[in-house]
């Protein structure tokens, strides 16, 4: 049984068909890429998968369970986490709090425990704090724990977002253009980091990326969409020489 399966998923926004008959099945422990020109519908795919949009047509199952009707926080609780194309951190909270909040859906205590500071509250918060500090340590973010994300360099913010996503302990991690806005040495670091996460956390990673260097060196297989339509799938090598893909990216004149 695939970890995530999309069957003929389409999404309409008013008159615009942003995605048409999109299908894919991801297995555990895969590293898969989704590429396509700007406005192709890539982020829309992630928004559908994470439950932020409900597909106009088609079926999405995660871990064998249809996700239609689930709210995004329920999908997260099933074991899916993501990062955003435009970083979405809680900018006025500390980095540590940003990570802690990734435990919100499995706090292990309720509001009443918080108010009465029960033993259950104490134990749960201790565990959350310990795990949050651990992930900050592993992601080399410990020194920023008390900082507000808005005061941090872009590359560090991206890492905080990754750490936050990993803190939910996902089985599937969705990365929406993780290299956007990074300079080329940061991009090399990011490639190593993603590979390390993939090996260390033993999860499935599905990434959207524009930079060929990133997808080519990381992904085992790729899917290409243009105007919401799937135009190619295959290994990075196959995709690189696919005429449809070259046309989509560079226009007809390129061939």
């Amino acid at each position: 049984m695939p970890l995530l399966e999309l069957e003929n998923v389409s999404q309409r926004f008013g008159g615009l068909k942003a995605l048409t008959d999109f299908s894919i099945a991801l297995e555990d422990r895969e590293l898969v890429g989704l590429i396509g020109p700007n406005g192709a519908g890539k982020t829309t795919v992630f928004n559908l998968v994470s439950g932020f949009y409900t597909p106009s047509e088609g079926r999405i199952t995660f871990g064998g369970r249809p996700t239609r009707g689930l709210k995004p926080h329920q999908v997260t609780a099933l074991g899916m986490a993501r990062t955003f194309q435009n970083i979405r951190l809680w900018n006025d909270l500390s980095v540590l709090d940003n990570i802690r909040l990734a435990h919100h859906f499995r706090l292990g205590y309720g509001m009443v425990d918080a108010v009465f500071r029960t033993g259950r509250y104490g134990r749960a918060e201790q565990k959350i704090e310990r795990e949050a500090r651990e992930i900050l340590e592993t992601m080399e973010l410990a020194e920023f724990a008390a900082e507000q994300p808005k005061n941090l360099p872009y590359g560090v913010q991206r890492r905080v977002e990754l750490a936050r996503a990993l803190s939910t302990k996902p089985r599937l991690l969705l990365l929406d253009e993780p290299a956007a806005g990074l300079n080329s040495s940061d991009v090399d670091g990011l490639i190593r980091l993603i590979r390390w996460i993939y090996d260390e956390f033993k999860i499935c990673i599905w990434m959207i990326e524009h930079q060929m260097k990133v997808v080519m060196s990381l992904c085992q297989r790729l899917m290409v969409i243009d105007f919401g339509i799937t135009i190619a799938r295959g290994t990075p090598r196959e995709i690189q020489s696919n005429p449809d893909v070259i046309r989509a990216y560079l226009g007809d004149g390129a061939l």
Binding site: S50, G51, F52, K71, P72, H73, T76, A77, A81, R82, F84, R88, L89, W90, N91, D92, L93, D97, R100, L101, A102, H103, H104, F105, R106, L107, Y109, G110, M111, D113, A114, E125, I128, R164, A165, T168
Partner: peptide, 21 residues
């Protein structure tokens, strides 16, 4: 952490919902 869901909703509601809040 429970109550910090409140400023999280304020500062970025989309991120809050998608990160499991």
């Amino acid at each position: 952490t429970c109550g910090k869901g409140i400023p999280a909703v304020c500062q970025n509601e989309v991120a809050a919902e998608i990160m499991g809040v």
